[in-house]
Amino acid sequence: MPKLCFVFNGFFYGGAERQLIYICNGLAERGLDVTILCLKRGEAYKDLLSSNVKVVEPHYNYSFIKTLRYFSDIIKKENPEMVISFLFQATLISRIFKLFYRYRHITSYRNTTYGSFLRDKLMLCTSFLDNYTTGNSNNARIKLTFRSRWDKFVSIPNISKVAYARSSDEIERSDFYFIGRLEKQKNVINLIYAFDNFKKANPSDKKLFIIGDGSLRGELEKLSEDLDSCDNIIFLGIKKDINEYLVKAEAIILPSLWEGMPNVLIEAMLLKTPVIATPVGSIPEMVDHLQSGIIINSTSKDEICRSLEYFLNLDKESKIKIAENAYESAKEKYSKESVINQWLALIAKS
């Protein structure tokens, strides 16, 4: 097997960053020589990293030009046979430098869009530089890879680290939860409007807990205050162990505008916590509507509210069935052993 160098922006909070660590740990456990090259300094999730994985990161955060020089210097020093890139900046740099250093290259798409037309076009137009491309959603193949290279696209799901599931008789308890970054992509503004409307139409003691942080947190907290919903919508910030909260939730709400394969959805399914989510990214491939979760018709606040009301009116047996179906669907598909085997097969043929 080749010497591997995984490249990403750095150790920051996010699903892609956690998945990279899980994959690197799994490959190192199988005896591969794995290095992580960070473009920026960060501290998130380092405690999850295996001691068998080497980490290279800058002394401080460089300008873009200095980052290019830093990347070139590390590639010369480490001399990897294969580079695997995650996220936009790391992928663009890794693809361009492949022209000079001739390493084999795999891009791992973690979303079906990079958030803007220009970024998506840059990813599409440079995709020919990959030996293979992988993603956790088949939609990424269509949007971010040339049709002539679809045979070089391999779909590999995320790894779940959930090791236990709660019993089905705990399904109907507590409140609704959102877990994720507080950014435009996650559509939390429409969730807040929807939950406010839901509470007005369905008086109850149910609350919405929002776990996560991001650039929109202040704006979202102010919106909650303006709607006089502070008692019902509670911001908890970043929490290290989200499983502690997943097991308390009556349901997880994921109202995203776009996604790849959301880790929180997998973890909820494996903890038998029902999921209410929009039909973006891999979600329609992961959730069978009314069988293993609730698919919201659109990302609008009205449709989010309707889905909350629909779930509220389900009887306990229906909620238990949805949760059990989700668990059975997820427990084999997202196991560490299965996903690492798929990565090993991809690396071998690249």
Score class of each variant (00 low, 15 high):
1 M>T: 12
7 V>I: 13
12 F>A: 14
14 G>N: 12
15 G>C: 10
17 E>F: 09
35 T>M: 09
39 L>V: 11
40 K>R: 15
41 R>T: 15
57 E>H: 04
61 N>L: 04
61 N>T: 05
72 S>Q: 14
74 I>P: 00
78 E>W: 07
86 F>W: 14
87 L>C: 08
88 F>T: 03
90 A>Q: 02
101 Y>D: 03
103 Y>C: 12
112 T>Q: 10
113 T>Y: 14
116 S>G: 09
132 Y>C: 04
133 T>S: 05
134 T>N: 02
138 N>Y: 15
139 N>A: 11
143 K>C: 08
150 W>M: 09
151 D>E: 15
162 V>C: 01
166 R>V: 03
170 E>L: 06
173 R>S: 12
180 G>W: 08
182 L>P: 00
187 N>D: 07
188 V>T: 12
199 K>N: 11
201 A>C: 07
208 L>K: 06
208 L>R: 06
211 I>D: 04
224 S>P: 12
225 E>Y: 10
235 F>M: 02
236 L>P: 00
239 K>G: 01
267 E>Q: 11
267 E>S: 02
269 M>K: 09
272 K>H: 04
273 T>S: 06
276 I>G: 06
276 I>H: 02
277 A>C: 05
279 P>A: 14
279 P>Y: 13
283 I>K: 12
285 E>W: 04
286 M>K: 11
290 L>A: 11
296 I>W: 01
300 S>I: 09
302 D>K: 15
309 E>R: 10
311 F>Q: 05
312 L>T: 05
313 N>F: 14
319 K>V: 04
330 A>H: 03
336 K>G: 09
337 E>G: 06
338 S>N: 14
340 I>R: 04
343 W>H: 02
345 A>R: 15
348 A>G: 14
349 K>S: 13
